[in-house]
Amino acid sequence: MVLTELLLRFFYSPPSSFFISAMSIINFASLANSGFMESKGKNIQYAKFFNAGSVKTSSADKKAKLSGRIGMLIFYSPALLASVASFALFPDEGLRFDLLRLALTIHFSKRVFEVLLIHKFSGGMEVEAAIIISFSYFASTATMIYAQHLTYGLPEPPIDLKYAGILLFLLGISGNFYHHYLLSKLRTEGDKRYKIPQGGLFSLVICPHYLFEIFGFIGVSFIAQTLYAFSFTLGTLFLLMGRSFATRKWYRSKFDNFPENTKSLIPYVF
């Protein structure tokens, strides 16, 4: 009871929606499990982990594959469309809702921009994986927007976090973009060799872009102040912890001179 009262100071009352409650549990469990599986070496088949450490079989060779650029456009485009469409589907539902969908629109617009103009790709991905990941982004985004819609007319949480959320979101998206830019400068056009990243926070952690992505999603959950947004952010934290752990392990296996003091995600800690 005390915990419930404490949570209700920070979040809207959970809506009487079985769908949102179920999605909160499913999304968190799915993301956390994905992070655990990646930490154990069972990586999503894209980017540098495509077929990494595995022997191709004839059945795997026959699976349809996409270029990295096309695959990642498939990842993000439906979620971006959902964010933009929400302005027409749910007009005039208050500042908080507008800030949330604006943040999601900026987030996915930035990702599409990076895919088109920033990132350099050396690998590919399976069509099946691209479709699954794309649906996951779309479903999570649409559910977060719908969960916010269900708060319309409800009393605001006693502790207002949306302005702190705006600052965290801006910090996260700018830091994420900066470190993606540094990664893009590691290789010239046509160069498919991987190198140890330099600059920014790369001397402290191998995945500072993930660290700032977490800041960004904490900002989003502070803007929303719904339990669904919080569960999604917590699941994302576990996912990126597992992915950063796998990334550091991959770099250590490829580079004998990888700095031992460079952590996975959190400077000096993890």
Rank of each mutant, 00 (worst) to 15 (best):
M1R: 09
V2D: 14
L3Y: 11
R9N: 13
F19M: 14
I20Y: 02
S21L: 10
S24R: 04
I25S: 07
I25L: 15
L31T: 01
A32P: 06
A32E: 02
N33S: 14
G35L: 07
E38C: 11
S39Y: 07
G41K: 09
G41F: 07
G41Q: 10
I44D: 01
Q45A: 14
F49I: 09
F50N: 13
A52D: 15
T57S: 12
S58R: 12
D61T: 10
K62Y: 03
K62R: 15
K65E: 14
L66R: 07
Y76W: 03
L81I: 13
L81E: 01
S83M: 07
S83T: 07
A85L: 15
S86V: 11
D92A: 15
G94A: 09
A103N: 04
I106S: 03
V112G: 06
I118S: 02
G123M: 05
G123T: 13
G124S: 13
G124I: 09
M125I: 10
I131F: 13
I133Q: 04
F138L: 10
A142W: 09
M144T: 09
I145T: 05
Q148S: 15
L150N: 06
L150Q: 10
L150I: 07
T151P: 14
Y152R: 08
L154A: 13
E156R: 15
E156Q: 09
A164W: 11
I166M: 13
I166Y: 02
L167Q: 03
L170G: 08
S174F: 13
F177H: 13
H180V: 02
L182V: 00
L183G: 01
L183F: 03
S184W: 04
R187W: 00
T188M: 03
T188R: 05
K192Q: 09
Y194D: 07
I196Q: 00
L204A: 15
I206L: 02
I206S: 09
C207N: 06
I214H: 00
F215E: 04
G216A: 12
F217Y: 15
I218L: 12
I218T: 09
G219E: 12
G219P: 09
V220M: 11
S221C: 14
S221W: 06
I223C: 07
L227A: 04
F230E: 02
S231C: 15
F232W: 07
F232Q: 01
G235C: 06
L237V: 11
F238H: 06
R243T: 14
A246P: 12
K249T: 15
R252W: 00
D256A: 08
F258D: 00
F258P: 00
P259Y: 00
P259A: 05
N261T: 10
N261I: 00
S264P: 08
S264V: 03
L265I: 10
Y268D: 06
